[in-house]
Structure formats: C-alpha cells, structure tokens
Simulated scan of single mutants.
Amino acid sequence: MRTYWHYPHIDPVAFSIGPIEVHWYGLMYLVGFIFALFCANRYADRDDNDWNRNQVSDLLFYCFLGVILGGRIGYVLFYQFPLFISHPVYIFKIWDGGMSFHGGLIGVILAMFYFARKTHRHFFVVADVVAPLVPFGLGAGRIGNFINGELWGRVTDVPWALIYPDAGPLPRHPSEIYEFLLEGVLLLIILQVYSRRKPPLGAVSGMFMFLYGCFRCFAECFRQPDPQLGFFSFGTTMGQILSIPMIIIGAWILIWSYRRAKRRLIEK
C-alpha cells in the first residue's frame, strides 16, 4: 500500500502583537508589493523611459488598492453571490477570508485606467509596466494558500499527493504548488525575458493575460472546485470560466499590438 505525504501543519498566524495577529497570507501580499516596488523603482531609474520613483510608487499604491478592493468584491460576487444576497454585510467580513484573482485583476485594470488618465499616458504604457511585476505576487499568494492548507487539489494517486487534514483521508494534488510554479515562477520568467526584448506597445500586457489564462485553466484541472459552486457545464470550474476570456482578450491584444507596430513601421 502506497504511503502518501501528510500536509505539514503550519500555523497560519506568523506572529502576534498583543491582540493583533499577523497572518502569513497577509505577509505574502506585503512581500509581493515590496518586490513590485523594488522592480518598479529599478525601472524608473533607467534612462530609456520617462518614469520616476514617485510616479511608480503612486501607480503601485493605486494597484494595491485595486487588488484588495477588487479581490474581495470579486470573490463575493463570483464565489459567494447567494450568501451576499442574503447577508450583504458579508462583503465587509474580510476576516472570514476570500479573495479572487479575477476580481483583483479588474480592480487593477480600473486603477491603471485612472492612473493613465491622470498622467496623460496611453493605458498600455502603464499596463506594460505593471504586468511583469504581477507574477511574483501571484506566486507569493499561492504560497500563502499552501500555508493556510486551502484550495487543495482533487483526489489522486500521484506519488507527490498530499493528505490535507481538512479535506478528508484521501490524497490530493497539491494544486497550490502547481499554481505557484505556473502563475508565479514560470510566468515571471517568461514575462521578464519577453519584456526585455522590447516588444511593441501592449504586447507584454497581452502576453500576461494570455499565459495566465492558459496556466490557470490548466491548473484548474487538478484543483478541487469550491464546494458551494462545484462543476459547471462540461466539467468546467468557475476559475476556468473566468480565465477563458483572459485567453481571448490576451490573444486579441497581442494581435492588435503587432499589427499596430507593423502598420506604423510601414507608415514610416
């Protein structure tokens, strides 16, 4: 009989200061923001752009607000809508947990639109700065999910399966680690390499949308769907339903970006 790994119990509270508990998941958000600020400041210090440190700090502040507000609102609307209808105050119960990447993405897009309008920049000039910074935060968030022992995968017999204490006695895919490797590590490497090749306006943003949608759809094949939602038609999950438009939009942005660059080259 095969022996499987048991999920290592990790206290979700990193440390306490009096009655205040600081959770690992919250620290992961902070780590992601600090990394993004560090990379954005390095970008602002370069001589080949018109950004400065104050501007990138303001941009990331707006994006951080977009992540928090959009992530919470998106989770409630996408994953807990019946509960929200019956108890609207639930949306403010952030201590109960619940954040949605797709909701956070919408919040960040709105923040970037606002910043672009405020600073008289093209939207994709702003988006192309932000996109390569996102995967690190996504990866940190998935590590936070793993520490919390949540968002586990489907039942499996692969040798690296884990038995989660809150998911019953059966071994499961460590889907948080899959998403960490795809959405965090691999996506970060691809976007960093791709952005340094000086692609046309919007291409970095389009590549992020396209690849994240693909990686998330693939990872959802191993992740247990939320119990209050389950599977949809053809065995799809809410994560896949929300990610498929990202693939389509990302592909469209990439096509538009390269066609625009080619057209401008011909016009010269």
Score class of each variant (00 low, 15 high):
residue 103 G to M: 04
residue 154 R to A: 12
residue 81 F to K: 02
residue 177 I to N: 01
residue 99 M to N: 00
residue 154 R to L: 14
residue 116 A to N: 03
residue 98 G to V: 10
residue 115 F to L: 01
residue 113 F to C: 14
residue 153 G to M: 03
residue 159 P to K: 05
residue 136 F to W: 13
residue 176 E to K: 07
residue 116 A to W: 11
residue 103 G to W: 06
residue 190 I to C: 09
residue 87 H to Q: 15
residue 82 P to E: 00
residue 134 V to R: 08
residue 91 I to Q: 05
residue 182 L to F: 14
residue 109 I to K: 00
residue 166 D to C: 12
residue 143 I to H: 01
residue 115 F to R: 06
residue 89 V to F: 14
residue 190 I to P: 11
residue 136 F to N: 09
residue 199 P to R: 02
residue 156 T to C: 00
residue 92 F to G: 02
residue 104 G to P: 06
residue 81 F to T: 03
residue 180 F to L: 14
residue 67 V to D: 00
residue 107 G to D: 04
residue 165 P to N: 06
residue 90 Y to R: 14
residue 144 G to L: 01
residue 151 L to T: 08
residue 102 H to A: 06
residue 154 R to C: 04
residue 148 N to Y: 00
residue 144 G to D: 05
residue 88 P to Y: 05
residue 83 L to F: 13
residue 179 E to I: 10
residue 79 Y to D: 04
residue 191 L to I: 05
residue 188 L to K: 08
residue 160 W to L: 03
residue 194 Y to A: 08
residue 157 D to S: 15
residue 70 G to K: 01
residue 115 F to Q: 06
residue 83 L to P: 09
residue 184 G to V: 02
residue 66 G to W: 00
residue 173 H to S: 05
residue 120 H to Q: 15
residue 179 E to H: 13
residue 156 T to H: 06
residue 75 Y to A: 07
residue 141 G to C: 06
residue 101 F to K: 05
residue 77 L to P: 09
residue 113 F to Y: 13
residue 181 L to A: 14
residue 102 H to P: 06
residue 180 F to W: 10
residue 141 G to M: 00
residue 196 R to E: 13
residue 173 H to T: 03
residue 86 S to G: 15
residue 66 G to I: 00
residue 170 L to D: 14
residue 74 G to V: 02
residue 188 L to I: 14
residue 116 A to D: 01
residue 193 V to D: 01
residue 69 L to G: 04
residue 140 A to E: 01
residue 164 Y to Q: 04
residue 109 I to H: 07
residue 171 P to G: 12
residue 86 S to M: 13
residue 140 A to S: 07
residue 124 F to W: 05
residue 140 A to M: 11
residue 154 R to N: 10
residue 135 P to A: 01
residue 152 W to R: 07
residue 167 A to D: 08
residue 185 V to Y: 02
residue 142 R to H: 02
residue 80 Q to K: 15
residue 179 E to R: 13
residue 168 G to F: 01
residue 168 G to K: 04
residue 190 I to R: 08
residue 118 K to G: 02
residue 166 D to H: 15
residue 84 F to Q: 03
residue 68 I to Q: 08
residue 178 Y to S: 09
